[in-house]
Design a binder for these strands. Structure first.
Lengths: 343, 343
DNA sequence: TGTTAGCACTCCCCTTAATCGAGTGCTAAC
DNA sequence: GTTAGCACTCGATTAAGGGGAGTGCTAACA
């Protein structure tokens, strides 16, 4: 059987309607809803076909139809094609551009959650380069040294080191030069144990300090395995009865609290796959079991210097894909602008 | 009417039983539960008295009794007195002492949530001192300066500044000395506009940089109004039917997502009030409306150098106060030890 | 005077039955 | 190919009824 124009229209009408109401939709509704001027009986025939083809299904006999995952998939694919052009102007919510990355990300998910009424999540952009760019040791007070390590992508890490006694300015300068000349431009793999012991030797009595610095360096430039994830609006799931029953709600909330479960969805930022970096997972298409009744829309964003992260929206399968995709697109460009404006 | 020994015992039995089961408890149960050797009829008489006195109440006629807020209050107060002595050894979960404060706090709430099956929260210790301790400007690359500000309590803030052109080492040194001599030891109030313009004048062509530094300083030493709050185990509320209905659950989850609502509970760390720094809010005793059916136990902890934060547990009114208070006490001492071990 | 047994009564909760109605599939006519 | 009509299905909602836990009260007992 083929999915002709009329079937497509009916399918779309069913989905649209279901997106709005959350209730199974019957033939009579469609008959009035569309401009096809067909009677409910005809619609019924077509719907029976659509069901046979797997695009829609009945929760039980003599209920209306709801879209199947396959149906949603059809709808999303169709919509995405249209979406390719427009990048709407989004509200000026991000206007006060925060310098702190963390605050920015938190704000983004929050605003997004408020505007969409879905649960949202974002992974912090992870630097691709992970080389030491700059190291600075300073004496903070009698017994404390401050080590600042700047890695590529301006990832900064501070580390307080305890020392027995105050270093003189010359000693400090020497150590700084020593560290910078040897470590700058190196990645984690390139720092060998041999090099470290050589450093220690040159540092003489301050070899202990080298240890502390190396630790800090390692921490700064290693690609963090568990990416930072921020979430917001998890409570929105209560808006959707089909997600809000005890068991389900609890699992979902837990997933959002234990953010590591989300990393699977937010990892792998491959801008290539679809041209826009936007992907839609419907129902069991995503691997997180607690989200098997949800849809997840993710978008890869870029924050300059090849720093990439992923932003995601989790909602019911009947989510307003149209709006969500639009928002994510806007956000992508906004984030880009923020980065540009920032420096 | 007076709360004699027997009444007290019965009240305690009612509460204990209710804590376990979550069901209203009847006279017959108490008659067997306690070692008073009284018939259910006698218990009934006493219970009627207790109800009249406001310690317990009936959800509806011909149901058992449940503790009122006043009843809980009695129970908690009585228990706290006993509790004053013991500080149990807690599991060695915090053994791998984290250097990063953030990680430590996250770990603490998580472990606590897992062990208690309640929702938990913690506020990061806020420094009392808020004076500049040390400032360091460094050239990171051609067009970027790194400003590091260390405030008292070793609160460190980094700030990347853009500059037109590279500064020479002498210039940098001059600026560093300028900044440190003028700003060290000052609090936010003590940095006047006059001082800033004087600084700018002395900085000459680099006055723009001063602006950036001042911004960073302000950010570093201002007492953060909204304290950092970490939470965990909010999903645990689903374990308790009396909290888990749609409306309630949603509000609670939201409260835990929007952490700022929690700050009221975690602010004001006054170790003085009760000797242990542990406080219990029952039902509407706490100000957060979504928690009117919950009890909240908070404990002030100290992480050295007068840095104080608060840790809190939110659960049903029938929470296991005994266990919770014990845990919090242990935690207090553990955190203290961690701090000591750390430096 | 305090304690207890007994009993009628209350009221929630659970189960079962009945009704309702939206929506279907099928058939026959247009 | 489309439509009207109709019997049918089945979840949802409502109603009724029995069961039972627990109470308050009274009267008897130590």
């Amino acid at each position: 059987m083929e999915l002709d124009e009329r079937k497509r229209k009916i399918l779309q009408a069913v989905i649209r309607n279901y997106l709005e109401t959350g209730e199974p939709v019957g033939s009579r509704t469609i008959s009035k809803y569309t401009d096809l001027n067909l009677s409910s009986a005809t619609i019924r025939n077509e719907m029976a076909d659509l069901e046979e083809m797997g695009y829609i299904l009945q929760p039980h006999t003599s209920a209306g139809r709801i879209p199947s995952d396959k149906g949603y998939r059809f709808y999303v694919d169709a919509m995405m094609q249209e979406k390719e052009r427009e990048v709407v102007e989004m509200k000026e919510m991000l206007v006060q551009r925060q310098d702190k990355m963390e605050l920015l990300l938190k704000q983004v998910v929050k605003v997004l959650a408020q505007n969409t009424n879905y649960a949202t999540m974002i992974s912090a952009p992870r630097p691709q380069g992970n080389k030491v760019k700059f190291i600075q040791l300073s004496q903070v007070d009698e017994h404390q040294l401050l080590a600042v390590i700047v890695a590529e992508g301006n990832v900064i890490r501070n580390h307080i080191l305890d020392v027995e006694e105050k270093l003189s300015d010359e000693e400090l300068l020497k150590l700084n030069i020593l560290l910078n000349t040897h470590l700058n431009g190196l990645s984690l793999n390139e720092i060998s144990l041999g090099m470290i012991s050589a450093l220690k030797q040159q540092a003489g009595i301050h070899s202990q300090i080298i240890n502390g610095v190396i630790d800090a360096v390692a921490e700064a430039i290693q690609v963090e395995e568990d990416l930072q994830i921020y979430t917001s609006g998890a409570n929105n799931i209560f808006r959707y009865p089909e997600l809000a029953d005890q068991q389900n709600a609890r699992e979902l909330i837990e997933t959002f609290e234990e953010k590591h479960q989300l990393s699977g969805l937010l990892q792998d930022p491959s801008l290539e796959e679809s041209g826009t970096g936007i992907q839609v997972y419907i129902g069991s298409e995503n691997a997180v079991s607690s989200m098997k009744d949800c849809s997840v829309v993710t978008a890869t964003y870029e924050l300059g210097e090849g720093m990439r992260g992923t932003i995601g929206i989790v909602g019911p399968k009947r989510m307003d894909y149209d709006k969500v995709v639009g928002m994510l697109k806007t956000l992508q460009s906004q984030l880009d602008e923020i980065y540009k404006g920032k420096r």
